[in-house]
Write a protein that binds this DNA or RNA. Structure first.
Lengths: 139, 139, 139, 139
DNA sequence: GTGGTCTAGACCACA
DNA sequence: GTGGTCTAGACCACA
């Protein structure tokens, strides 16, 4: 299992969110592929030294997003990504993240160029569906 | 005082954060200049019909960032913004926000191009210091 | 607050699901209108004699569906219903419920007519968006 | 033995339930008649490549419903389906399923008409006893 | 041994 | 007083 997650207990972002964010990123960067099994709730909890409930919470969130699927008695698996949300909803959910990112960069005296560079650099590490309309068959 | 803040009580973003974000933006876009006075905690709380604690919390955050300064008995003023974070620290803090944004964009079925467009569009709406240190010669 | 929820602790359906189902139905039958406040997590937990976490879990699910919105320090409110999910996803989620309903009716020796009657009767008590395309302005 | 069961290990529905559902459907659609023999627990487990416990669990459920009967040393047979629930009990058990279906349909942005269509479509794919007691004269 | 649900109770963020 | 997060630990469903 090539999934390595790092938790920062001192951070303001809740642990469960750190987990979901990193799993999503692992999928985006192809570190996790469709069909791959994730560590069991208990195993990951032990590894990260957090409560199993916290890991379960993260997994539940990811499952609700359709990114993973948990099968009782068998484990948790990465699923084929489906188009779940409307365009509208997607935009609505992205907005505060964009504003938060830009606001934070501003506060920390980044220039627009620096922020753009950081953004592009991160983006270049990811390889999720490139082409517009690749999911066109999903209404 | 040309500061106009709009609070959306229906929003998921906490009120105190709506205030800090808008003050920061007002400074970034030069709607507020160094030395300008902000409304008092009580005055703003009354104007926005929110709890004074909430305004106080926002002002405290802004003061900690070095963006405003509260001078006892005289009021609250926009101050020279000091650099609080090293580049290194800044990047470390930006990282999870970038990752969160990208992960969410993937889940929301955006393509990389669409995310980039949304990012650039948002960025173009801001007009904060383009060049490093542009703030410095402002005092 | 005209919301009355009845929990059956003996049932196979988890408590949190009984809560979400009944809140959804209350919205569908217009017992709850947009903007209405739901009982606080603690209040409902006390009323139903269940753990606050269980109520919180139900509220979290409903919030993720976009049916309600919880505002820290203020309470939980019914929101304007938005189109969140793609048609595709909607169908996918409805399928097992339809199959479960029909299968259960079959096992219990209902005739198709009886099931249809029960279905239509329940449906007639609901009054959510009637017209096709009422949500057309979304996407 | 014209019984063919297809297991979807990727599905959210537990395997044991996939089995019971398909056996019930086979009986309802007359693919399985009273007196027909079902594969043994071990044989079916091997055929489906699932844990024998899982098949046993499914058979136990079906036996409890009175749909099949396991005769020691001889095998498992389809038996006359006895009515296990009174109308009253039946309706009580159907209620939450109906409410769950309708609530979910609303959340998924279906109109009442669309839900009705989906319901009728699904119903038309089943061919269980149309008339009350049609089962009785089958023995 | 898997994951899912629930309780009891602590502590924090927000208003 | 709101809701949100996390822990510890029990018990159940499933394989």
């Amino acid at each position: 299992m090539n999934l390595s997650i790092a938790i920062n207990t001192g951070s303001a972002t809740p642990i469960y969110k750190q987990i979901t964010d990193q799993v999503r990123l692992a999928v985006a960067t192809r570190k996790l592929a469709v069909g791959d099994q994730l560590p069991s709730v208990r195993a990951l909890a032990e590894e990260l030294v957090v409560n199993p409930n916290t890991v379960a919470r993260a997994y539940t969130d990811l499952a609700r997003e359709g990114l993973i699927e948990s099968r009782a008695g068998r484990g948790v698996f990465v699923t084929r990504k489906r188009k779940m949300f409307t365009r509208e909803e997607g935009r609505r959910r992205l907005e505060p993240l964009l504003e938060g990112l830009i606001g934070e960069a501003m506060v920390m005296d980044f220039t627009q160029e620096e922020l753009r560079d950081a953004f592009e650099k991160k983006l270049s590490q990811c390889q999720w569906n490139f082409k517009k309309g690749a999911d066109a068959n999903h209404e």
